[in-house]
Amino acid sequence: MKKEFYNIAKLVTQNSKILDVGCGNGELMKYITENISKDIRGIELSKSNIQKCVEKGLTVIEGNAEIDLKQFPDSSFDFVILSQTLQAFLDPENVLNELLRIGKKAIVSIPNFGHWKVRLHLLLKGTMPVTENLPNEWYNTPNLHMCTIKDFGNYCKERDIKINLKNLKFHNFYSELGIFVLEK
């Protein structure tokens, strides 16, 4: 399992009620089910990923986070997880609002466009950065709304969204990924 998932799993509490938005093949959900909380379910767009989740015995709903989060009542989950997909939504602001409405806390990770490799790439090569975390070219990237850790921090500050992780070890310059625990 990728390191990011271990870090996310550390942030959820025992036996809490969790929704994994864009749960992929269910790797993170499986780990959390087996180690932290059985009360977890996922939403996923890809039919083949859903098959993989069902094989693992996970509860998954086929759906699109931009449309299908509205069916969940306010504060119906202790944690809502969104791993590295915020930047791919047409309307990330709406999705973030929904996450904070249905979850008491939202755990959001973003690929950091402010990482030094990204900055260096653009500075020296003058082309759109392609890195391990951002492997696509400009013309086929699913990422519509790239931001930096600093951008995301500013966004939350402007909207009074609390970033509820005191020992934040993520730095705009050194971290390829930002993981945030958000609360409205």
Binding site: K47, T59, Q71, F72, P73
Partner: peptide, 18 residues
Amino acid sequence: IVIALNAIGKNVGFVEIL
């Protein structure tokens, strides 16, 4: 049906088969 079950926090999975 999925929406109605989610609205009351019931355990529901859903898939549309191609």
